[in-house]
C-alpha cells in the first residue's frame, strides 16, 4: 500500500479539497495539513458552487453568467474551459458519474444539461421553471434531476422521459439545497426558514419514475438554512445555516447527533463528508474552512487563506482498501 502525499502524484489518487468564495479565488488545500497548495483565479465573480469531475482531472466553478473549468493536474491559475452564454448567476453545478454530461442550475430560471463530449450536443437539454433555480441534485440513478427554486417548488425531472412533477413542501419558502443519499433511498431539502424536509424514495428503477413519500420534517435551524448533504454511508445528514452552525442528524430517527459550531465562524455556506463518513468539511463567512471530527464535534484542521467569505467547497476523498 502506498500513501500519496507528494504533490506530483496524479490528482486521482489524492484527497481533493477546494474552496471558493467572495475573494474571487479558488484555493486547493492539502486536507490533512491545512496547507494551501494552489490558488486559481476566478475573476469578476464570486464562486457560487464547486464540483470535481468524476475523473478528478478538473474542477468546475459556477459563477456569474458562466461555469469555469480548471485543470487539477497542472498549476495553471486560469480556467481551461469557460462555459458561457448564460445570464445571471449559475447557482449549482454537478456531473454525471461517467463524466458524459454536466448539469447546472441558475437564476435564469432554468436547469441545463451540457454535453461534455466534444463535437456532439446529443445530451444538451434545458428545463425551464418559473423562479430562479437555487439548487440542482442528480439522483444517484443518474437519470433524474431534482431542481429546487426560489418560489419553494421542487421539480422532479426525468431525463429519460422528459416527464416532470412538482411539489411544494412549504409555501413561500425558498428551497436552498436538495440532497439524496448515495443509495437513492432518501431525499432531503432545506429552505430559508431553517426547515428540513425528508422524503423516502421508491421506484426510480429503469422503468418507473421515482416517487417521493414524505417521511420527516426537522426544525433544523432557527434561521436560513443553506446546505444539506448525506454522508456516503447514508447514516448521517448535515445541514448548514446562517445561524453560524452546521448540524449533523442521524438518518435512522432524525435526531441531532452533533452541532458543529465555532465562535465567530458566521454563516456556514457549504459542507461535505469524508469518504468514511467520519469527518465533515465546512465553509463559512469568516473565510476559514474547517475539518470536523463528527464523533467528537471538534475542529481537526483549519484552512485559512481566503481574504473574504467562503461560499462553496468541493471535497473528494476515497476509501483505501484495508
Amino acid at each position: 500500500m502506498t500513501i500519496t502525499m507528494t504533490s506530483d502524484t496524479s490528482p486521482s489518487e489524492q484527497v481533493i479539497l477546494a474552496t471558493g468564495g467572495y475573494d474571487h479565488t479558488i484555493k486547493l488545500w492539502q486536507a490533512h495539513t491545512g496547507i494551501c497548495q494552489r490558488t486559481a483565479q476566478h475573476t469578476e465573480s464570486q464562486v457560487n458552487a464547486l464540483d470535481i469531475t468524476p475523473d478528478k482531472q478538473h474542477i468546475a466553478a459556477a459563477g456569474y453568467t458562466r461555469i469555469r473549468m480548471y485543470d487539477l493536474a497542472s498549476n495553471n491559475p486560469s480556467p481551461v474551459v469557460n462555459y458561457e452564454g448564460l445570464s445571471k448567476n449559475v447557482t449549482s453545478v454537478g456531473f454525471q458519474e461517467e463524466g458524459k454530461w454536466m448539469y447546472t442550475g441558475g437564476e435564469d430560471l432554468s436547469a441545463r444539461i451540457w454535453d461534455l463530449r466534444s463535437r456532439t450536443l446529443q445530451c444538451q437539454r434545458i428545463f425551464q421553471v418559473s423562479a430562479p433555480v437555487n439548487c440542482v441534485c442528480l439522483h444517484p440513478n443518474q437519470s433524474e434531476l431534482v431542481v429546487g427554486d426560489q418560489s419553494g417548488v421542487i421539480h422532479l425531472w426525468d431525463l429519460k422521459t422528459d416527464h416532470n412533477e412538482q411539489l411544494i413542501p412549504e409555501a413561500d419558502a425558498s428551497i436552498q439545497s436538495i440532497a439524496m443519499d448515495p443509495l437513492g433511498n432518501l431525499m432531503a431539502a432545506v429552505n430559508n426558514k431553517g426547515r428540513c424536509f425528508i422524503w423516502s424514495l421508491s421506484g426510480g428503477g429503469s422503468q418507473e419514475p421515482t416517487k417521493l413519500n414524505p417521511c420527516h420534517k426537522i426544525e433544523a435551524h432557527p434561521k436560513f438554512a443553506l446546505k444539506c448533504a448525506f454522508s456516503p454511508d447514508s447514516s448521517l445528514l448535515v445541514t448548514t445555516s446562517a445561524d453560524q452552525s452546521a448540524r449533523v442528524w442521524r438518518t435512522s430517527d432524525f435526531t441531532l447527533q452533533t452541532e458543529l459550531k465555532q465562535e465567530g465562524q458566521r454563516w456556514v455556506w457549504d459542507a461535505a463528508f469524508s469518504a468514511d463518513s467520519q469527518y465533515i468539511v465546512t465553509a463559512s463567512s469568516d473565510g476559514i474552512a474547517r475539518l470536523w471530527n463528527i464523533e467528537k464535534g471538534t475542529v481537526e484542521r483549519e484552512y485559512s487563506g481566503h481574504s473574504k467569505a467562503i461560499t462553496s467547497l468541493a471535497f473528494r476523498d476515497q476509501i483505501v482498501n484495508p
Binding site: Q14, G204, P322
Partner: peptide
C-alpha cells in the same frame, strides 16, 4: 440518459463499508 440500477450498487457498496478513508 440510461438509468443505473442502484440495487447492484448497494450490494457492492456494502462490501466497501468499514474501510478507512484516505483522509
Amino acid at each position: 440518459f440510461q438509468g443505473k440500477d442502484l440495487k447492484q450498487v448497494s450490494s457492492r457498496d456494502a462490501k466497501s463499508q468499514g474501510g478507512k478513508s484516505l483522509l
